[in-house]
């Protein structure tokens, strides 16, 4: 029995991990783009970006999943997005907004003197960003990012609301057969994934500890 349950939970875990990695793949660059928007010198662009970030961070992710899945059909009569795609789209938008704030904090925490030192040495803006600022930003955002990554692993459980068969869904399905323990058993998988993430982030942080 244990083997059968483990196998079906592993299938659920695959969906969970797929959502996790795809969200990161799209949300990290999108988040950087949004952070540039929220730091823009153009007031309207900055206003719009900050408005979007406010709405996305100010409403529950579960609601966003429902709106993206059912919204286009109910409002405009469009065909529904595939369930997994709808889940992915809402996760990407949601996490990009959180990432953008982390990026903004990281970028703005690099002292102005670093930019100025680069400028005075005749470096171009891209050179200053890639050669001087970027690594300092990365170093500063590693701890808050590890939080977000771990939260993301657990947030994937929300997609069961639109019947994406991730790991909690799989565990829950055993309740109908009179078994509650497979649901509790899912915790082991979350702990394993997040344990691995914690380890990797710890290593990365150590790697960047050669400078201050």
């Amino acid at each position: 029995m244990l083997a059968a349950v483990t196998l079906s939970l592993l299938r659920g875990l695959m969906t969970t991990l797929e959502l996790f990695f795809l969200t990161l793949l799209f949300a990290l660059p999108l988040g950087l783009l949004i952070s540039f928007g929220s730091m823009s010198r153009l007031t309207p662009l900055r206003g719009v970006t900050k408005g979007i970030v406010w709405v996305i961070r100010g409403t529950p992710l579960m609601l966003q999943i429902l709106v993206i899945f059912y919204g286009p059909g109910l409002l405009f009569g469009l065909p529904l997005l595939p369930r997994f795609t709808a889940a992915l789209v809402s996760f990407v938008i949601n996490y990009a907004c959180y990432f953008s704030e982390i990026f903004r904090g990281g970028i703005q925490s690099v002292p102005a003197g670093q930019y100025e030192a680069g400028q005075v040495l005749g470096m171009t803006r891209p050179q200053i960003f890639f050669r001087i600022t970027l690594l300092q930003v990365i170093k500063r955002i590693v701890p808050p990012m590890s939080n977000e990554f771990i939260t993301l692993v657990k947030d994937t459980a929300l997609v069961r609301i639109i019947s994406v068969y991730e790991i909690i869904w799989m565990g829950e399905s055993y309740i109908k057969k009179g078994m509650i323990w497979p649901l509790f058993y899912t915790a082991v998988f979350y702990l394993a994934v997040n344990g691995l993430l914690t380890l990797l982030f710890g290593r990365f942080e150590k790697k960047l500890s050669y400078f201050r």
Binding site: Q114, A117, G122, I132, L135, F211
Partner: peptide, 26 residues
């Protein structure tokens, strides 16, 4: 800018580079 060099009050060295790399980067 290259006509002028500037030494800052707060040094503003690039922390992720060694002393030598700080001098050679630009």
């Amino acid at each position: 800018r290259l006509h002028f060099g500037l030494v800052f009050q707060s040094f503003n060295l690039f922390p992720q580079y060694t002393a030598l790399e700080n001098v050679t980067l630009a």
